[in-house]
């Protein structure tokens, strides 16, 4: 029973959400809209559980002063401060004078930008490894990457025009690489992924996949 009811709920929900794409009839659309609303409500309620989880996982470690407890203390303090200010300012987040807004603009945004900026360095190191011509495939990748990178900057266009006397326009070659072989590969992956998603969906709806069920 503990598994049967969730399986029935999964089946009914899965069927409704599949059929609603094809049927605009209210007998289908009304349940679909209701399920979506329930989903939004449940997901919103989960934020409370997430907050509790942060406290339950981290507070004991802070109290016991386990390894790296100070990081956890900073996280919990930041969470409490942010939430507390939000309550204190009664959600006036959009007011530019509010402290919440200040925290967002002067703390969160720069921190996020910093993390995002790390990507530039990581791309460099990953590209360095990926582009080593150790095999035919890696050599092809390297050649394509050089062409695309050169074709994206003005000097690439200038060089290709000078060296080939206008016979080859590097940006055009880049467009062809992106629009034909690259796009073909992408679409092949997307078609495969879509078919995989369909078969996963069917397995879940039919109850063949049950590992997500506890109890």
């Amino acid at each position: 029973m503990k598994k049967t009811i969730p399986l029935i709920v999964t089946f009914i929900t899965g069927v409704i959400m599949t059929v609603e794409y094809f049927s605009p009839h209210p007998l289908v659309q009304h349940p679909k809209a209701a399920i979506e609303k329930w989903g939004i409500s449940v997901m919103s309620a989960m934020i409370v559980l997430g907050t509790l989880n942060i406290l339950i996982v981290n507070l004991p470690r802070i109290v016991r002063k386990e390894r790296d407890w100070m990081y956890k203390a900073i996280m919990v303090a930041a969470m409490i401060a942010t939430a507390g200010l939000g309550f204190y300012e009664q959600g006036k987040f959009d007011d530019k004078g509010s402290f919440s807004n200040w925290m967002f603009t002067h703390l969160l945004v720069p921190l996020q930008s910093t993390m995002f900026a790390l990507l530039a360095f990581y791309i460099t190191s990953a590209a360095f490894r990926a582009f080593r011509a150790r095999s035919v495939e890696a050599t092809l990748l390297l050649a394509a990457a050089i062409i695309v990178m050169l074709g994206r900057v003005p000097i690439g266009e200038l060089l290709s025009a000078k060296l080939t006397g206008g016979a080859l326009n590097l940006p055009d070659l880049v467009s062809w690489i992106n629009d034909v072989p690259n796009l073909a590969g992408k679409r092949a992956i997307m078609v495969g992924a879509a078919l995989g998603a369909i078969s996963t969906g069917i397995r879940v709806i039919l109850g063949m996949e049950r590992s997500y069920l506890a109890g």
Binding site: I189, M190, G196, A197, T200
Partner: peptide
Amino acid sequence: GEELFAASA
């Protein structure tokens, strides 16, 4: 892509 969806099966 699809291998992600195939993994559990």
